[in-house]
Design a protein around this nucleic acid. Structure first.
Length: 562
RNA sequence: GGGCUUGUGGCUUAGCUUGGACAUAGCGCCGGGCUUCUAACCCGGAUGUCGGGGGUUCGAAUCCCCCCAGGCCCGCCA
């Protein structure tokens, strides 16, 4: 895989170069040819204006010139003018090259880039279980992490633990003052939420409790050992609960970074000292930045009048540390963080430091409104996982009654995971969504299980085929269509890493499954003979491997039977 | 009030950064296909003022301006 170069891009680059040489234009407008061709150029329109000639005429002339270009001829592509469009049809050589790569383990992986990336995701406040809004963050983040590793980046995934917020102080107050014993069978994070919700109710009834909460916050800020121990204990218990959920979702972090550490290690004081030197800084009662000149209407407060730091200060310290140790810093954050995140980016730039790249995702709400941990209004990820596994098990039992229970459970677990992850990742992060049980529990149609099914189907064919000799040839339209889709995979990985749009991989994987399913219904594999059988089995091997790599990059198990 | 963002068939959704040839798919609806490699599947059909209005352009879902509607944000919270 080391020096593998995407065969499609290789040819595309040559065509672009030839077009540039032939036209003298830098922007040669190479677009997807759709049903007409593999690639097309609309440069004739642009030239028509400059040359005052008809674009149809120009296209014809250019086609003649390009056809005679030796570099172009070497690609094996053909070009014809269709009206004003210059169409390019590639020969199957690039598909053959792609197939040879596609049957190898690790297809789609790019060579090591020597760039170190730190990716932060999930980072939910530890005051209750992860709900379906949080896991949108986790799944976007984890999918991006998988894509970055595949795209050849060195990667560290971090969870930033907000362990000194008001919410945690409220939790600690609840444990000190309310009935807070762990109930039979209760998970730690659900336990924390129960106490947190109850404590909030008490505060509503008796606002004087707020004073006690404030005291707890001050104690922890000033490093009181007893209080700090309490905070850390409750936060840790909640994180233990998160760990179970995240494992069920096949989501992982390399490191948990605690917010309070940035107070203790002096990084917060250090960044505050640097901020003080900025011309935008106002050091009066509070320490704040006036970022009006950059379009921010409100002040960006760094330190309170009582001398304690606010969240923003610790966050800056954290990002300073990340910027110093990594080449790229990426955060996955909810859209509600857009303002403070851009203030942070702005401040980092003012300090002459690397600003983080941020992937914002919009909210997941419930049909009855937005979710709230404090009000106890949320669908927990654990409930979703439990329910979907149950549904998946019933489904597997209906379809595969001959399998033993252990096997059915194992398949159900993988299918459930696929349904959840795909349902969430398929939608562009910019779109807010409403959680819908019916859609989340859907195993058919545009779903993770649909893609798993295509993969299992390919595995089944290969298992029955026995040994065969690899044969890289393409004859029928169905074969070519499938090879084309397989060939796109490496560039999809690159595109997702470049644009930070993981849903593109979801769309691609589904289209690959679609194409394979169509192929499957039109072309016989096992019953064909000789050379035809070998070349189709080779294609099935390639699509199986590409589906496997796609699914695993989506964090979904590529199971071989279901 | 200001800022950010979304608006694509009945519902969900791709495409928008980088303008190009009949706007992508799924659900639902109508009609077909399992003694044939896994029917969690496939094939065909109906369904669209790409929120509305202007503009730029040979060409706009895509770029610009205005408006409408939804979401989010504007704290010495995190």
């Amino acid at each position: 895989m080391e020096d593998y170069q995407d065969p499609l891009n290789k040819r595309k680059n040559i065509i672009v170069k030839v077009l540039q040489e032939s036209t003298g234009e830098q922007d040669v407008q190479l677009v997807d040819g759709g049903e007409h061709a593999d690639l097309a150029s609309t440069v004739a329109f642009t030239l028509a204006k400059k040359q005052k000639t008809s674009p149809v005429q120009i296209a014809q002339n250019l086609v003649a010139i390009i056809s005679n270009n030796p570099g172009f001829q070497a690609t094996g592509a053909r070009t014809v003018a269709k009206g004003p469009y210059i169409n390019f049809t590639l020969d199957t050589s690039y598909l053959i090259e792609s197939l040879q790569a596609a049957v190898q383990p690790g297809y789609g992986s790019h060579k090591k880039k020597g760039i170190r990336v730190v990716l932060e995701h999930t980072s939910a406040n530890p005051n209750g279980p992860l709900h379906v809004g949080h896991i949108r963050n986790s799944i976007i983040g984890d999918t991006l992490a998988r894509v970055f590793r595949k795209a050849g980046y060195g990667l560290e995934v971090q969870y930033y633990v907000n362990d000194m917020g008001r919410q945690i102080a409220i939790v600690v107050w609840g444990f000190d003052n309310l009935d807070s014993a762990l109930r039979e069978g209760e998970k730690e994070d659900a336990h924390i939420a129960r106490v947190y919700i109850a404590a909030n109710r008490e505060i509503e009834k008796d606002p004087s409790i707020t004073q006690q909460v404030n005291t707890l916050m001050q104690l922890v800020e000033h490093g009181d050992p007893v209080t700090m121990k309490k905070f850390r204990r409750e936060v840790s218990r909640c994180l233990d609960g998160f760990a179970v959920t995240l494992k069920d979702l096949n989501v992982s972090h390399d490191r948990f970074v605690w917010e309070s550490d940035f107070i203790r290690n002096g990084y917060t004081d250090r960044i505050i000292a640097m901020i003080k030197k900025l011309p935008q800084t106002q050091d009066e009662e509070t320490l704040a930045l006036d970022l009006k000149e950059f379009g921010f209407g409100n002040k960006y407060v760094i330190r309170r009048s009582d001398g304690t730091s606010v969240y923003a200060a610790r966050d800056l310290a954290y990002h300073d540390w990340k910027a110093a140790n990594f080449d790229r810093v990426i955060d996955v954050l909810g859209a509600d963080h857009k303002l403070i995140a851009s203030q942070l980016q702005c401040t980092m730039k003012l300090l002459g430091k690397k600003a983080p790249e941020i992937v914002h995702f919009e909210f997941v709400s419930l049909p009855e409104g937005s979710m709230s941990t404090r009000a106890g209004k949320f669908v927990s990820a654990d409930d979703l996982i439990t329910e979907i596994r149950k549904r998946a098990f019933d489904e597997v039992t209906v379809r595969r009654p001959e399998l033993d229970e252990e096997m059915r459970k194992s398949i159900a677990q993988s299918v459930g995971l696929a349904a959840i992850r795909y349902d969430i990742i398929k939608v562009t992060p910019e779109k807010s969504t409403v959680f819908d049980w019916k859609e989340a529990l859907d195993f058919e149609r545009q779903s993770g299980p649909y893609i798993q099914y295509a993969h299992a189907r390919a595995c089944s064919i290969l298992a029955k085929a026995g040994t065969f000799s690899l044969c890289y040839e393409l004859k029928t339209d169905q074969e070519i269509a499938l090879a084309r889709q397989i060939a796109k995979f490496p560039s999809v990985i690159e595109k997702v890493a470049a644009e930070l749009h993981p849903h593109v991989l979801a769309t691609y994987s589904r289209e690959l499954a679609d194409t394979f399913n169509t192929f499957y219904h039109y072309e016989q594999v096992l019953k064909s003979e000789g050379n035809t059988r070998d070349r189709r089995l080779t294609l099935v091997r390639a699509v199986q491997n590409t589906l496997k790599e796609s699914l695993e990059t989506l964090g979904i198990d590529a199971i071989s039977t279901m």
